Every structure is written in structure tokens, then in C-alpha cells.
Simulated assay, not measured.
Amino acid sequence: MAEYDFPDDLRDAQLRLDQASAAYRALCRTLPWSVEPEPGWESEKQPYSERRSSMAASPGYTPEQKTEEARLRREVLQLSTSVSTHPYWSTLETGTTVDARMALKHVHDGDSPLADTVGDGSSRQGV
């Protein structure tokens, strides 16, 4: 992969985006399946299958959970927009933008204690 001279503000925005996205995913894993309280359900047995699907009742999100989910979603959206519309992208030669964007996504690999080593020796951001 080619080397790119990303501006510091773009590198920082990508790092903050990675962190905000990880925080959002972590929060979402802890939330109930429904924002509003909903009763549980169980489906009827499906033809040609012994499997039934079901879902326990959801208490809904607490006001704090709603606020935090909305805050993190806004942050991820704002940072995504900031990274994707950065003026740096217009300085690249035609046909190199996709490779440069992929390189930016991995520019901080190994910089974080969350990074883990993959079998081939490369580093990948842990989730």
C-alpha cells in the first residue's frame, strides 16, 4: 500500500471516529432490544423446521441510555462527515482516493492498547 502524507487534523479526526464508533458499538451491545418497553414474543413453529424464535420482554431504554446513544450517534456522524469531506481528498490524483481512504483507516493500527496482532504479523484494531 502506498504511503500518504495525511494532515494531522485528518489523522486526529479518523482516530476520534474510530474511538467514537467503538464506544457506540460497546454501548449498543448493552442496550435492550427495543427503545420503548415492548412485551416479549415467541413465533409459531415454522414449516420444515423445529426452530422457534423468541425475544424476552424489553424494558426499553432509560433516559440516560437514550441521551448517551443519541450523543454517540451524533458524534460518529459528525466525525464521519468531517473525515469524508476533508479538503485533503481533493488533492489526490484521480484513481488514488479509495486506496488513500483505506490507508487512513489503518494509520493508527498498533498505536492503541486495543490493537491486537493477527497471525500474519499485521496489526488490526481490536473491537
Results as ranks from 00 to 15, higher is better:
Ser58Thr: 09
Val35Thr: 11
Val98Ser: 12
Leu72Gln: 08
Tyr24Arg: 08
Pro59Asn: 05
Ser34Tyr: 13
Thr97Glu: 12
Thr81Tyr: 08
Tyr88Glu: 03
Asp9Pro: 00
Tyr4Gln: 11
Pro59Lys: 07
Glu69Met: 03
Asp109Arg: 10
Glu42His: 01
Ala22Tyr: 07
Arg124Phe: 03
Met55Gly: 05
Ser122Pro: 00
Arg101Gln: 14
Ala22His: 14
Gly121Thr: 11
Arg51Lys: 15
Ala13Gly: 03
Trp41His: 07
Phe6His: 08
Asp109Ile: 07
Pro39Asn: 07
Asp120Arg: 04
Val98Met: 11
Thr96Ala: 10
Thr62Trp: 06
Pro59Gln: 05
Thr117Ser: 15
Thr94Tyr: 08
Asp8Pro: 01
Arg51Val: 13
Arg16Ile: 02
Arg11Lys: 13
Glu50Asn: 11
Val118Leu: 10
Ala57Cys: 00
Arg11Cys: 05
Ala22Gly: 11
Val107Leu: 11
Gly110Cys: 13
Ala20Asp: 07
Ser53Ile: 01
Thr91Cys: 02
Tyr61Pro: 00
Pro63Ser: 10
Asp120Met: 05
His86Leu: 06
Glu68Leu: 09
Met55Ile: 01
Leu17Pro: 00
Glu75Gln: 14
Val118Ala: 12
Val98Glu: 14
Thr94Ala: 09
Thr81Pro: 02
Leu92Thr: 01
Leu72Cys: 01
Ser21His: 06
Glu50Arg: 13
Gly40Glu: 06
Gln14Met: 03
Met1Gln: 14
Arg51Pro: 05
Leu72His: 01
Ala2Arg: 14
Gly126Val: 02
Ser123Met: 14
Cys28Tyr: 07
Ser49Thr: 15
Val83Ile: 11
Val76Trp: 01
Met55Pro: 00
Arg16Gln: 15
Thr96Ser: 10
Gln19Arg: 10
Glu68Gly: 02
Ala23Glu: 03
Leu79Met: 05
Ala13Trp: 00
Gln78Phe: 05
Ser34Val: 09
Glu44His: 05
Val127Asp: 06
Leu92Phe: 01
Gly119Thr: 10
Pro113Ala: 12
Arg52Tyr: 13
